[in-house]
């Protein structure tokens, strides 16, 4: 019972208008940085990694603050985030291997 009350206090304490607007300005700033890097840096593998990294940072704030994941119990957040982390690792592995498809496909 005590635990539930604590949770409710947390929930109402965390989601203030101030936090929401701060998160908004942060997300907007990251989008502007995306925009700036796009025009200031020539296309390269490093630039792509920067974009993906900034995307991960944006998703941290959207999921953590807007979707309230930061304040949920660890049991819930790990149930959602761990499978997603495995999927991301799978995508990275598939793309790394899939790069070699081109050799097989076009040379045949």
């Amino acid at each position: 019972m005590e635990h539930t009350e604590n949770h409710h206090n947390n929930e109402h304490g965390a989601l203030t208008k101030k936090t929401i607007w701060a998160t908004f300005w942060l997300l907007l700033a990251i989008t502007v940085i995306d925009f700036a890097i796009y025009f200031m840096m020539p296309a390269s593998g490093i630039r792509n990694f920067i974009f993906i990294g900034l995307g991960v940072v944006k998703s941290y704030f959207i999921v953590g603050i807007f979707m309230h994941m930061k304040y949920e119990v660890v049991r819930l957040s790990s149930m959602i985030i761990l499978p997603m982390a495995f999927i991301l690792a799978l995508i990275a592995a598939l793309l790394y291997e899939g790069d070699r498809w081109s050799i097989i496909k076009w040379i045949e």
Binding site: M84, I87, I91, L94, L95, W101, S102, W106
Partner: peptide
């Protein structure tokens, strides 16, 4: 999210294929 992940995987594979020197 899994559904979108599979779509983005397909996208990545096709894009890597087209990036090859041999791609038409």
């Amino acid at each position: 999210a899994f559904t979108f992940s599979s779509l983005l995987t397909a996208y990545g594979c096709q894009r890597f294929l087209a990036a090859s020197d041999f791609a038409p």
